[in-house]
């Protein structure tokens, strides 16, 4: 059982406590720093290791990816879908590279697994879309958020 503590008469009178409470709210109203961040204009600084929207790193317009299939293997959400192909110079490359952004859990395992430093997670966190989005290869190659 809870301890029954009888408050003092002044406390039970309640009025003084009410006035003190009013003083606190008024102090907050007038002087306290407001914590609201006005989003589109002001932005919060995120850590450089923040895992946001994906991109595939490319050098001179050629993607680093060699379609080694390590990232779809390691992906716990199984959201990466790669179709491998052969380029003119017998180099392996992804014909299709799709990431289902709704399935992705942004764990960053693909980034860890990639031997070619191809797939990366950027700092971009505004990823709202108007439809169910699968990131296509062209989209991923736009070097959005490349540091």
């Amino acid at each position: 059982m809870l301890a029954q503590r009888k408050p003092s008469l002044l406390n039970r009178l309640y009025l003084i406590e009410v006035v003190r409470g009013l003083a606190i709210t008024m102090k907050n109203f007038l002087f306290h720093k407001k914590v609201t961040l006005q989003f589109p204009e002001q932005r919060r600084d995120y850590s450089g290791r923040y895992r946001g929207q994906h991109y595939i790193k490319s050098v001179n317009g050629v993607e680093n990816c060699t379609a080694c299939m390590l990232c779809p293997t390691v992906c716990p959400a199984e959201c990466i879908h790669i179709v491998a192909g052969e380029r003119e110079d017998k180099e392996k490359y992804p014909i299709k590279f799709e990431i289902d952004s709704l399935r992705c859990c942004f764990c960053g395992m693909c980034e860890e697994a990639c031997p070619k430093d191809a797939i990366k997670l950027s700092n971009i966190y505004e990823m709202s879309q108007k439809n169910r989005t699968v990131y296509e290869k062209d989209f991923l190659l736009e070097q959005r958020g490349n540091k």
């Binding site: 709210t25 008024m26 109203f29 306290h32 407001k34 914590v35 609201t36």
Partner: peptide
């Protein structure tokens, strides 16, 4: 607005 400012919001 009053409630917001009292709760340190905008």
């Amino acid at each position: 607005r009053g409630s917001a400012l009292m709760q340190n919001r905008l």
